[in-house]
Each structure stands twice: as C-alpha cells, then as structure tokens.
Design a protein around this nucleic acid. Sequence first.
DNA 1: TGGTTTAATCGTAAAAATACGATAAATGAT
DNA 2: ATCATTTATCGTATTTTTACGATTAAACCA
Lengths: 99, 99
Amino acid sequence: MLNTFDTTTALMCKALGHPARLAILRQLLHEDRCICGRIVEVLPLAQSTVSQHLKVLRDAGLIRGDVEGPKTCYCADRARLADLATALADLLSASEKKR
Amino acid sequence: MLNTFDTTTALMCKALGHPARLAILRQLLHEDRCICGRIVEVLPLAQSTVSQHLKVLRDAGLIRGDVEGPKTCYCADRARLADLATALADLLSASEKKR
DNA sequence: TGGTTTAATCGTAAAAATACGATAAATGAT
DNA sequence: ATCATTTATCGTATTTTTACGATTAAACCA
C-alpha cells in the first residue's frame, strides 16, 4: 500500500513543505546559482539553520551543491522539480481515465 | 521573502509529505469516494491515526469530507491537486524565462 | 428504547523537526 | 605562517508530528 513512488515523492514534498525551504528553492531558481551566505542574507534565519534546510533540500534531490573553495555554490535541480510536478499531474491523470 | 504563495503551497506539500497521506490520496483518487473505514482497511494504521491524517489533508484543502449519517465520505479535490502541480510547474517556467 | 456502527476527539508517549549559538574544518588572502 | 572567510556540524532546547488506545458523539437498526 505504500510503495517507492510514495516514499520518494513524499520525501520531495516534505522538503518543500516548509516555507523557508520553498523560499530557498525560489531564490535558487531566481538567481540560478548562489552560495549559502547569499541565502542567509535574504532569509531571516541563522546561518546554521539555513545550512540545515539546504541539507534537507539536497537530500531530497531538489538542489545540488558544488564546493568551490571555502564556499558552496548551490543550484536547483530543475529536472527533479519537473519530475515532481509531473508525478503529481500523473497521479491525477491516472485516476481520470477510470471515471 | 516568504509570501502567501509559499505558505499555502508549503501547506499542501507538507500534507503530501508523508507516505501514508500520499497513499490515502491515491486511494481516494482510485476509488473516487470512500469512507474512513475503507481507508483503515487498506492502510496498516489505527482508525484514530487515519482520521488524523485525513484531517491534515482536509486542512490543506486536498480532500473534502461529506458527513453521511454516521459515516463520512471523503473524496480528493482534484482541482486543488492540479493547482499544486501547476504551481510547481510555474515555479520552474517563471525561472526559465530569465536564462 | 437499547444496542451497534462509524468517525472524531482526547490524552499521551515517543520520535522528528526546527532553530539557535558555538565550534570545527577548509580554503583563501596577507 | 597567520588570519579571515565560509560553511558544515555539534549540542541543545523547544515545538511539532506521529501513533496508539480509550472515549465521545452521532446516526442507524432492531
């Protein structure tokens, strides 16, 4: 009754299920690439908290982070986000067929 | 930096951010309408727990529940789910334009 | 009316999430 | 080599989530 689809989709949804993380993702989509410090500037949260949120997003596969010297440059994984949007749309369309 | 979009979208994502709730939604999409007891049959969770998950989904606007005598008949709000899929897709396409 | 069925709510325990400051680790600059 | 910058991680307190059994409330049936 709960399958792989559920757990991976739920993981992504869960990652987006916090306003701060959604804001972080939007920031990354907007600026394309940015370092942790930039996000700390924009959000009213401590550096350690932002770092924690970035980890959640990364673990869900929604963003990637390249270490560049002492900095880490983050960017959104657009394909994964597209996958999620598709997964939700598919959930709907699969059930439409049998109506 | 965190707006209405973020909070409402995050609320829906958060509701979907648990495998059991995703399974419940899928069940409702599949069977179109079903009562709480039916979901309890399908999931390995206690009645009170299922009821709690149904409340979370309802508060997020993803499902609706009609009281029918002693039973409550739940159904998925397809429009809201479509809205979420669209919101995520828009998030992407809005950022594509400026690349 | 009394008993049954159904679902919500209450109370509660355990686990997870959230936020922070402090610290550590790594790199770059002087 | 030392110092500054940047980010991850640690430790921790607080809040929230999750799950359960027990109880309540409402409606139906006999």
